[in-house]
């Protein structure tokens, strides 16, 4: 297999090298890619959408349709992880473990028994290890700031790099950090599975819904200028706002998906102690 792989690789590589000879030189300002279509975007982005970040305007408006599906791809990935890994509830494990918080004594119970609801005991798993004090404390202090940063990135996608995707991932990462530094149960208490699973399609629906709203207002799908009549602004600002709405949708979808995938992978679908 190795030799076959090597041969295939070399042939493919040689072919690609052969083809690359005809490319315009790297960083050539006169290459077709730089002169044919991109000047339009650069010169008209501000006029059309009043968004200084050309990437954002291109992403969410000129090629907004791509981005909608991109978000859908993310959603799909989350859903596939869920459908593949999640071991559906209903099956109580043979034994369950509880830990007395004050003394650290672990109680193991056979199936069917339960400890009365109280502050002193917390449910743990057989793989349980105590969280590390330093990591736990410093992460606890960091997480709110990370979240704020994520929201900031979403909100400022117009004028600086970033946007829904990046912000969403950072938001998701903050919850993942919580799960890493504490444990998955803690993170799940913050973001319940059902919330995640419902927010995720809602996020994408915000995107698609914005587009559909435009369609219902009588123009083509995703033509945000139609929102002008709803938002009482001029069409250019309406595009900007449309982009913003879309970014929020993307942010929600990406955040929840990242959490969703992490939860499923790190606990192998059991939703107990994670990584």
């Amino acid at each position: 297999m190795k030799i076959i792989g090597l041969i295939i690789t070399i042939i493919t590589g040689a072919f690609l090298v052969y083809a690359a000879i005809d490319f315009p030189a790297w960083s050539d300002p006169n290459s077709p890619a730089s002169t044919y279509l991109s000047p339009y975007f650069i010169e008209n982005s501000m006029k059309d959408t009043s968004v200084p970040n050309y990437v954002t305007s291109l992403l969410a408006d000129y090629r907004g349709f791509d981005t909608m599906f991109e978000t859908t791809v993310i959603f799909t990935a989350g859903l596939v992880c869920f459908i593949l890994l999640r071991i559906s509830g209903g099956k109580e494990p043979e034994t369950s473990h509880y830990r007395h918080v004050l003394t650290g004594v672990t109680v193991t119970l056979k199936k069917g028994h339960k400890i009365p609801e109280s502050e002193d005991f917390e449910r743990i798993d057989d793989l349980w290890t105590p969280p590390d004090l330093i990591i736990k404390t410093s992460c606890r202090l960091m997480i709110p700031f990370i979240q704020l940063f994520g929201l900031y990135v979403i909100a400022h996608g117009h004028s600086s790099p970033g946007g829904g995707f990046q912000g969403g991932v950072i938001l998701g990462a903050s919850i993942i950090l919580l799960a890493i530094s504490h444990d998955l149960r803690t993170a799940l208490e913050k973001m319940r599975e059902k919330v995640v699973a419902i927010l995720c399609p809602i996020g994408v629906s915000i995107y698609a819904g914005t587009g559909t709203l435009c369609l219902l207002l009588g123009v083509n799908f995703l033509d945000y200028s139609a929102l002008a009549s709803v938002l009482h602004v001029d069409p250019i600002a309406a595009r900007s706002h449309g982009i913003f709405m879309v970014e929020i949708g993307v942010g929600i979808a990406v955040m929840t998906t990242m959490i969703w995938i992490y939860n499923n992978i790190s606990s192998a679908g059991k939703y107990n102690q994670g990584l």
Binding site: I146, F149, V153, H156, P161, G162, I170, A173
Partner: peptide
């Protein structure tokens, strides 16, 4: 911003 995100 990238730098901050990167560090995080």
């Amino acid at each position: 911003d990238i730098c901050l995100a990167y560090a995080m």
